[in-house]
Design a protein around this nucleic acid. Sequence first.
RNA 1: UGGGGGAUGGUCUAAUGGCAAGACAGCGGACUCUGACUCCGCUUAUCGGGGUUCGAAUCCCUGUCCCCCAGCCA
Length: 564
Amino acid sequence: MNTNTPDTPEKPLDFIRQIVADDLKTGKHSDIVTRFPPEPNGFLHIGHAKSICLNFGIAKENNGTCHLRFDDTNPGKESTEYVDAIQEDVRWLGFDWGEHLYYASDYFDKLYDFAVQLIKMGKAYVCHLSGDEMREYRGTLTEPGKNSPYRDRPVEENLALFEQMKNGELDEGTCSLRAKIDMAAPNMIMRDPAIYRIMKKHHHRTGDTWCIYPMYDFCHCLSDMIEQITHSICTLEFENNRAIYDWVLDTLKTPCRPRQYEFARLNINFTVMSKRKLLQLVEENHVDGWDDPRMLTISGLRRRGYTPASIRNFCDTIGVGKRDSWIDMGVLENSVRDDLNVHAPRAMGVLNPLKIVITNYPEDQEEEMVAQNHPQNPDMGTRTVPFSREIYIERSDYLENAPRKFFRFTEGREVRLRYAYLVTCQEAIKDENGEVVELRCTYDPETKGGSAPDGRKVKGTIHWVSAKHGIPAEVRLYDRLFSVENPDSDKEKNFKDFLNPDSCQIVESSILEPSLAELGQENRVQFERQGYFCLDSKESSPKKPVFNRIVTLRDSWAKMQKKR
RNA sequence: UGGGGGAUGGUCUAAUGGCAAGACAGCGGACUCUGACUCCGCUUAUCGGGGUUCGAAUCCCUGUCCCCCAGCCA
């Protein structure tokens, strides 16, 4: 139950939820049925997540049902590999279709009967125009089309021809079944659209039983009708298709009359969102498969370490409207930060190690330092981190000629090693090239745990890992796949010309605190001061852990540097 | 150019004739054993022009710009 108190104002409904609410209120519908209808010709991406959250969300909020229906009417492009991946992704996102798993191909018999019915009504005909001819006859945006010479074939002939199409007696491309509507219609889609074409292709579910397959405009509305969908929600580019959606259902006088509503599809900058382009990246090996952690596919986001909740929250934040919009990639990144900040335990990992020797720390001494797993949530407990004379810190935490505002190591500056000691850098050792290879430091034995008994403060706290105890790991630092906001917009260049060459930086010699050896595949951690990480599900092994950086922490120091 | 849609801060979303609100980004500050988190403050918007009205982002007229449609794809 939603308790709507002044303290927790209810979020205003988006325009589709408003329609649903009104339909419930007026009694137009008492049960809400929606559907998510992917074509199994590729993997789902973040744009689909928006649709999934909308359709399953509306059903859930109204005690309704949401069907998962595969729109598998084009066997040339579809496969069970995609069917399986899509189901896994929807489930992973946290949605459940119960027993309502359907395939448009389940309706092929019924669809065929409806087509025959249309022919008998004189509302469909078999047309022998070739593809090119059909285009010619269709007219243009400003000129009406002209009728096909086959438009007035007698019903009996159409019936016989359609039967032959079905029986495989006609070759692909020789003819098609067309709805007889209006070749002068200002809406191009209504100029006698093809509703069945000959395709002698093996279908992943119906095998070789069909030689003809229905087109989207004929199949989709009828599938919705068969499943008693109340609200058929799709993206804006189908607005023109609503006319044919309505025409089919109205002329067939179907008992159930679903309505189509359109919303704006999701655009995010610094990426591409079409399945066709994602497929290209996969097939041409620009990425490591559909689940490459840089891809905004659901499986890519999963491998990257995004949580289902963060994606759902993202979809909730961006809203549902009708205007074309571009969401900043930062909003997506923010949603996973917000989630992980609350739920991910903390740990220390040094990405680019620089050794420091604490010269006044006893040679063979070791200590167990107590560290909190989450600074804001004591319930997440503590762990111990081994400390010794030689440790690694982040290379970027030392600067030879440090500005005043640099709070980390430089000669003579005291810094806190998190949960350990206050340490002062005395000297930097360089190699023959002048490269700093080691720091000599001294520690204050009175500051165990990290605070000084005399109350003195240090500005900087840095992470570290004991050299003797640290575990080596490979870490992959990901950045946006494209280096420009809209890789699609350039008229001369291809979107692939804008691939970001630095989108995956592999760091082979990171050193992590030993507790990280126990981390499970499903878990995510924050490497303090760095970002959120998880094990790579494909490449990581206990012998050689491989971590993916999910997202960085916000870094106001870096921002300051950039400004200067 | 025919038809169908759409224009609110830098970005996204709300306001359903009655104080233009929220989020993100940005800027400034506080706090801090993560330069994280959190908290506080600030800058920035109704596409243009007319009209109706006591009152318009909202209604009317008009103009401009953007998106979609000429697959036997979905």
